[in-house]
Design a protein around this nucleic acid. Sequence first.
RNA 1: UGGGGCGUCGCCAAGCGGUAAGGCAUCGGCCUUUGGAGCCGACAUUCGUAGGUUCGAAUCCUACCGCCCCAGCCA
Length: 566
Amino acid sequence: MDNDTASSSERSDFVRDIVAADLREGRIDSVVTRFPPEPNGYLHIGHAKSICLNFGVANEFGGRCHLRFDDTNPVKEEQEYIDSIEADVRWLGFDWGEHLYFASDYFEQLYEWALHLIREGKAYVDDLAADEIREYRGTLTEPGRESPWRERSAEENLDLFERMRAGEFENGSRVLRAKIDMASGNINFRDPVVYRILHSTHPRTGDAWCIYPSYDFAHGQSDAIEGVTHSVCTLEFQDHRPLYEWFIANLPVPSQPHQYEFARLNLTHTVLSKRVLLRLVKEAYVRGWDDPRMPTLSGIRRRGFPAEGMRDFAGMIGVARADSVVEVEMLEHAVRSVLNRTALRRFAVLDPLKVVIDNYPEGSSEDMEVTNNPEDPSAGTRQVPFSRELWIERDDFMETPPKKFFRLSPGREVRLRSAYFITCNEVVKDEEGNIVELRCTYDPESRGGSSPDGRKVKATLHWVSAAHAVPAEVRLYDHLFASPFPGSGGRDMFDDLNPDSETILGNCWVEPSLARLPIGETIQFERLGYFCVDPDSTSDALVFNRTLTLKDAWAKLQAQGRQNTA
RNA sequence: UGGGGCGUCGCCAAGCGGUAAGGCAUCGGCCUUUGGAGCCGACAUUCGUAGGUUCGAAUCCUACCGCCCCAGCCA
């Protein structure tokens, strides 16, 4: 398991500080954490932060991390989500070993503990309807009122609760509530609901139960059962911590876990909300949970992001308690940095322009040796066929080049990467004046890409031999949301969706070796960006996804120019 | 206006009484057979504000200001 990237293991944060101190001062013998997803959707980048934290801490301190599904609400949960979550955590690079658990494994024990509370006079069955409970709860500034059913006898409560379990009552007709303090400033203490009636089939327990524990009643006790020492969750659960502790203190649980909260991840141009992601999928704004534009782990995987980049990112952003919004550029940097080191370089032309080399022998071809990865000599070289007719990128040519355009133009000589120097002599156009072909000559002495006379050239272009190239579809991706803060300023988030988040190019040519690239491997199209094969590919129809562009100084210049003239 | 949190560079984030790490972004320069990568340099006299304690404060105290979370039988 490659969990110890430099960035994550060297960094410290308040959670790691607490764990280190607890270990050092003997409060615990070994650390136990858990990642507790509810299987009601797919995991996203925000979850990755939590996964890296929980598994990372366990790995670094020689403890263990459990994967526990918080499956206490059967109306929203599905087996599909359980399966995808397991696959995503594994993909991220973490291993829970034998420690796969489900809150539903503890339903019987939780039920016993509910009985315990009733016997102690610390819980009661309430007949109030949901809206009445809300009314009785009071407001943020006014205390609540006690339910008329609050003082039932333990016997009556026991009888009613058993009958709730037996299925005698309808959904919503009664709940079990902890009896704490209706006047507490902390609303979680105003007799929180502990069990509700839900006649619903559960993905794991089927129809064995029709009452289900609430999050507050299930979570801490599950931690206690598993011997979790540090129960790490996000900030919105801070107010629940006193309740978490109340249950632990009032129940005969086998261990004393503690809860710690950190700030959840927010990313610019991105929405990390299961509710919104579910809507994007259900209302077909995207093609599915694994659409390459989705911030889900399955989405970024399909997009070509390496798990290592995701982990490095988690290490870079740190863990703290202050609300924050991380710029996506940081994630993109982490991904590019891994890919620059590992991705094989290949040639592909996305918007082809024909080049004919007049002085190159007709009908012949030769193999050029091309470096696979200049960052990694051990990646070796490959042979790429070269011939008289080639495709180059349309925007690598300009008939009347502006000041800082270094690429090909009439009369100008450039290098074809790892091949020859060529000079453009003639621009061929159709009746409408569109450039359809460039007539060029090459310098046979410049084979490999340098001239014996030491002649310099200002640009290097990528190319593909027309006779050998393989056709492909290439899907370009950009931020799903055009605004850095979707939905800010009172706008509807969905109005901030980027209409150009996906651009499909159907007329691309890639070098022959790409016909056999396996799904899941991300490579670099030289000078263009990182790409991977999409699972939509078939043996005779290649489809590539653009993972990320390369940083592009020329594009930036152009953008600035456009801004200045606008 | 109840309760709980948080405020250090454009964005993350170290710092835990001894005189502001690092990363991303940005801007220069070098180098380059990817306008990629790499390299070098610049980038907070100041830590929400105002007072106080101290030889010394981002770190301690007080007050104020701002932002976030909580009124699901969701998690």
